[in-house]
Design a protein around this nucleic acid. Structure first.
Length: 757
DNA sequence: CATGAGACACTTTTT
DNA sequence: GTGTCTCATG
């Protein structure tokens, strides 16, 4: 009986042992590609099969995507819906607990969740009162201190007690004021979701008892990325049954900058007595050439548990390191290679990984030029667009009238004649009566003021009265949003302009899309509330909306790529100052994290891996010289082949500088280091497929939508006249071009509508 | 008070 | 090159 489900899970020996172990705390070191997710999901399935109620299992991940995938896989294993299973991100699970117990910690039911922007708004408002000047101490910097304290579960009092300098004490006071402001506004930021749960469990014995009893099993994914607060949480929750199961890989800890403590995984055995530890070291993902390269890349790190991945796979193609003259040539090369690759495999199997989002730009241009489809994962997401945030602010305010941040955002949107002065007057009236800004408006405290703004405040109040009525009648959320857009005149504001620019057209489209998303969500989530929708949207990461598109190459940051795999991977910009980032030069621990980041990138590759670097690149608005990453120095040369394109396509002057002519590239590593004789290989790829016709679907596409624009081109628009193209973004039907017209106006246009000549 | 132009600073990664 | 903030103008 016992063995049946274990047999059906297709596990190797170590995996199987790890899944079947049930006698207390358990830590599984699971290297990249060793079946970490499989073990975690198998464990859950096994527990359920053994009779543990799904509702008594608490399984925390770091992304919604991982949680969703895991749930699906569990359900497949047990062949039934895992109803009641507590699986989700730390943030969403804590949110769920806090929503249930809100009163216990003095929050009324629907609290708002503040994202980073909201946090900054709050801090900027508070700063003047503490004599903090944005120029001397940027709000961003203050927020980072506060956030790091919060993610370590250090209260304002504890923080103040621990610092000595005058400025630090001011920061501590600001931290306290910030927490009070959030509370007044019935809001929590991301850090609060975790830390407030911890504080609540610590302080309230009854609630603690309840959840400790309830969660017989606590499982944690990516344990190496947990911060102090998350550690405290799972420690508390598992204290009663002592059945905690953590999987992770210290070599993939890449979130130290937001509080993750690699020590958590390295000291797990100390924190949880009688821990049984397993190590998964057989890699099923990559060829042995890739794995050896990755192992060598991570080896110099000192802070790590000892392990070495191995594989039964043959070496296959060697890893390549490519040197280029500049970022243009780098992107051109990658685009060309991807062009060849997508003729024999779907674009989804290919990824271009970079350290910073800003690196994507050149690649977008290169791919567009060659008409190779791509998807950019991450970047500015739909919900970060201005018009969407405006709509969301209205909705948030309807759910939580104390949400002053949202109020300030929409107070004068569309223009109601309410400016800074009106806001200040309102704020003091609200303060006097102990009300939030919206509450003060609704109770007409703003209407007796001797001010021109009164009209605006009346308008605002009437708008919200109407919306509240819709709420009471339990109109579907999409309807409420539509009412809002109509009553406030927000939609008119978007469409009403005399000359509707294409940018504004896109905004209208986005707002409509939000409405669709809202009603679709409402259909999928019977009985869902507006507040729940807002929560899901706020807690969704940018990978979450990503669907692999059949024929598009994936662009993403190295951070985004964690947990994913691709047959072909290009890591670009492997240069000092990028990987490792210049900002981390001074700190060895941070350098190690950068090295892990490179390691994460390398271990995404299944069949082929290429790392690229360029001698110079366009950064910071100018061309800057760049050296290959120091991490490359650590990798023995026999583990890769080197190709130097800088010398082949470089200027004659540059070629002369290396004392070489085309065909005989300089030795590698390049001049700054002692020459190690290597035999550079050109990138010919004898195994490359014969060139076939270009991807057909895309050609049609481009003919229809993309009449070949290039930077600097002079174009003529029906109404705006002649102008020069200054920027191109997007792709295919989404192509947008920015044109500087004769009247000095810069306009962003959708290429498919613009009809330019 | 709204609007626009221009200065300004900032680019590391994100739940 | 880009988004944000400030200041002058209507």
């Amino acid at each position: 009986m016992d063995g049946t489900i274990l047999d059906s899970l297709a596990l190797n020996d170590v995996q199987r042992e790890a899944v079947a172990y049930l006698d207390g705390p358990e830590l599984v070191f699971a290297g990249a590609g060793t079946g970490k997710t499989r073990v975690l999901t198998a464990k859950i399935a096994y527990l359920i099969d053994r009779g543990v109620y799904p509702s008594r299992i608490f399984a925390a991940t770091f992304t919604n995507k991982a949680a969703r995938e895991m749930r699906e896989r569990v359900e497949k294993f047990i062949n039934a819906p895992a109803a009641g299973l507590w699986i989700g991100t730390f943030h969403s699970l804590c949110c769920r607990i806090l929503r249930r117990e809100a009163e216990a910690i003095g929050y009324t039911q629907p609290f708002s969740i503040y994202d980073t922007n909201d946090q900054l708004t709050v801090i900027k408002r508070l700063m003047p009162a503490f004599d903090l000047d944005e120029k001397a101490t940027p709000a961003k910097y203050l927020l980072s201190i506060i956030s790091s304290r919060k993610s370590a579960c250090v209260t304002p009092d504890e923080f103040e007690a621990s610092v000595s300098g005058f400025r630090d004490r001011e920061v501590a006071k600001l931290y306290r004021a910030y927490q009070k402001a959030l509370r007044d506004q019935q809001a929590m930021d991301f850090d609060d979701l975790i830390s407030n749960t911890v504080y609540m469990l610590r302080q309230n014995g009854e609630i603690r008892e309840k959840y400790q009893e309830m969660f017989r099993w606590v499982l944690v994914d990516e344990y190496q990325d947990t911060n102090r607060a998350q550690f405290c949480l799972v420690h508390l929750l598992s204290m009663k049954h002592k059945q905690i199961f953590a999987v992770g890989d210290d070599d993939q800890s890449i979130y130290g900058w937001r509080g993750a403590m690699i020590e958590n995984i390295l000291s797990f055995e100390k924190e949880f007595p009688n821990t049984k530890t397993f190590k998964l070291e057989q890699n099923y993902r990559s060829t042995s050439a890739i794995l050896k390269f990755a192992n060598a890349a991570i080896k110099p790190n000192k802070i790590r548990a000892r392990k070495e991945l191995w594989t039964n796979e043959p070496p296959a193609a060697p890893v390549k390191i490519n040197r280029f003259r500049d970022d243009r040539q780098e992107s051109d090369y990658v685009a060309g290679e991807c062009g060849k690759l997508i003729q024999r495999m779907p674009g989804t199997d290919i990824a271009v990984l970079f350290r910073t989002n800003s690196q994507s730009r050149v690649f977008e241009e290169a791919f567009r030029k060659r008409k190779i489809p791509y998807v950019l994962v991450g970047g500015t997401s739909f919900y970060e667009r201005m018009e969407i945030k405006d709509c969301m602010a209205y909705l948030r305010l309807l759910v939580n009238p104390k949400d002053d941040v949202s109020f300030e955002r929409i107070m004068n949107l569309p223009a109601r004649g309410l400016g800074d002065k009106a806001r200040e007057q309102l704020a003091s009236a609200a303060k006097q009566h102990g009300l939030s800004l919206l509450e003060a408006v609704m109770q007409r405290y703003a209407e007796s003021m001797p001010s021109r703004a009164v009209k605006g405040f009346i308008d605002l109040r009437e708008t919200f009265e109407l919306l509240y009525r819709s709420m009471e009648e339990e109109a579907p959320p999409a309807q409420i949003l539509e009412d809002m857009l109509h009553h406030t005149g927000y939609m008119d504001m978007l469409t009403g302009k005399a000359a509707v620019s294409e940018e504004e057209a896109a905004r209208v489209e986005n707002v409509n899309e939000l409405m669709n998303a809202l009603s679709a969500w409402y259909e999928d989530n019977a009985g869902g509330t507006l507040s729940k929708f807002l929560e899901e949207v706020t807690l969704a990461g940018d990978v979450d909306g990503w669907n692999r598109e059949d024929n598009a190459v994936n662009f993403m940051t190295l951070h985004c790529a964690k947990g994913l795999e691709f047959r072909n991977v290009f890591i670009v910009g492997v240069e000092d100052g990028i990987i490792p980032s210049r900002q981390n030069f001074d700190d060895e621990a941070k350098i190690e994290e950068e090295r892990r980041l490179l390691y994460v990138g390398c271990t995404r590759a299944m069949e082929a891996l290429e790392c690229c670097h360029a001698d110079q690149r366009f950064r910071f608005g100018s061309i800057q010289p760049s050296d290959p990453s120091r991490f490359i120095d650590d990798i023995p040369q026999e583990l890769y082949t080197f190709s130097n394109s800088a010398a082949f396509f470089g200027s004659p002057a540059r070629a002369a500088a290396f004392g070489k002519t085309a065909g005989a590239a300089p030795s590698y590593p390049p001049p700054k280091r002692p020459a190690g004789a290597s035999a550079p290989t050109r990138t010919p790829a004898p195994d490359a497929p014969p060139k076939r016709h270009p991807p057909p679907a895309y050609d049609e596409f481009s003919q229809e939508y993309e009449p070949q624009y290039r930077m600097g081109q002079t174009v003529t628009h029906k109404t705006y006249g002649r102008g020069k193209i200054t920027a191109i973004s997007g792709f295919g039907p989404d192509t947008k071009i920015t044109v500087l017209f004769g009247d000095g106006q810069r306009r962003k246009l959708m290429a498919k509508f613009a009809k330019l000549e």
